[in-house]
Design a protein around this nucleic acid. Structure first.
Length: 181
DNA sequence: CGCGTTTGACCCGCGC
DNA sequence: GCGCGGGTCAAACGCG
């Protein structure tokens, strides 16, 4: 794959579990990829600072057990229950930003930080603080280009964002017209 | 005191 | 079976 391409292998079609508009306001969103290289995504908007792209997630085969972000292969966490089909949906996107933690409208609690191989920057692990909400995300800066931050979301929020934004509804509606139901 | 972060230990799957 | 790498736990700590 190409040097800076973010590749994501998900297991199902998903709505976006985060609030896009604050991210757009606070950072420069480069790309949102949801599956297999797919540059089949729909460009929802662009200007000189913000250019983002949404790609649809298709069903992947049972063999696709890996998420590959640049050269780092990350194992998907297998459930103890053996429910292969109930894998949490995950996707990743690139942002060019000075800050690593983007305000996406949800409250997160950091629960870990790890040094990953071939990367001089640590990866941070966050969990949504809302009760019963199991959404996780991890944030990592690329060592090849420290201006780029990769955020990977896992799971779906079962509740609205704590910090609603005015134009969130618009963007959500706009996205849903492109997503298959 | 309540909530979030830090950080080393622990766990677990996988490859050798 | 052992070590490695990635992911999580949880006690200690920090801060408003």
């Amino acid at each position: 794959m190409e040097n800076h391409a973010t590749q994501f292998l998900g297991s199902s079609i998903m709505p976006f579990p985060f609030n896009l508009s604050p991210i757009m306001e606070n950072s420069h969103v480069m790309n949102i990829f949801s599956n297999n290289n797919v540059p089949n995504g729909v460009v929802l908007g662009s200007n000189q600072d913000i250019r983002f792209q949404i790609a649809q997630v298709k069903e992947v085969s049972q063999k696709n057990k890996f998420i590959q972000i640049d050269q780092n292969v990350v194992k998907k966490s297998g459930k103890k229950t053996g429910e292969m089909k109930n894998r949490e949906p995950r996707f990743a996107f690139h942002t060019r930003s000075q800050v690593e933690v983007l305000d996406d409208g949800y409250r997160w609690r950091k629960y870990g930080q790890k040094l990953v191989k071939n990367n001089k920057f640590p990866r941070s692990y966050y969990r949504c603080t809302y009760e019963e909400c199991n959404v996780k995300k991890q944030v990592q800066r690329l060592s090849e280009d420290e201006g780029i931050v990769v955020t990977t979301y896992e799971g779906l929020h079962t509740h609205p964002a704590q910090k609603p934004s005015e134009n969130f509804e618009q963007i959500l509606n706009q996205m849903q017209t492109y997503l298959p139901n």
